[in-house]
Simulated scan of single mutants.
Amino acid sequence: MYLYIENIAFDNAIQSGAKLISPISDRDWGDRACYFADLDGHIIAFAEKIN
């Protein structure tokens, strides 16, 4: 799941038990994103447009 949000903040995800897979960084496709695995192992990305 790839979710666009404003002002990436993921403290709530960590507190809920999600595991950080990839920290916030600027991606080649023009997004700033981070990736998590939820408790069931599903990958979730929080992203925002860099521009």
Rank of each mutant, 00 (worst) to 15 (best):
M1F: 14
M1V: 15
M1L: 13
L3I: 12
L3K: 09
L3V: 13
E6L: 05
E6C: 08
N7P: 11
N7Q: 13
N7D: 15
I8W: 02
A9H: 08
A9K: 14
F10W: 06
F10I: 00
D11F: 00
D11V: 09
N12I: 10
A13F: 14
A13I: 11
A13D: 09
I14Y: 01
I14H: 00
I14F: 01
S16T: 05
G17R: 02
A18C: 10
A18W: 08
K19I: 13
K19Q: 14
L20H: 06
L20I: 07
I21S: 09
S22K: 15
P23A: 07
I24R: 08
I24E: 10
S25K: 08
R27M: 12
G30M: 00
R32W: 04
R32L: 03
A33E: 11
A33V: 11
A33I: 11
Y35L: 13
F36L: 05
A37S: 12
L39P: 08
L39S: 09
D40M: 07
G41I: 01
G41R: 01
G41Q: 02
H42E: 04
I43P: 08
I43F: 14
A45E: 03
A45L: 01
A45V: 01
F46N: 02
A47V: 02
A47Y: 07
E48T: 15
I50P: 03
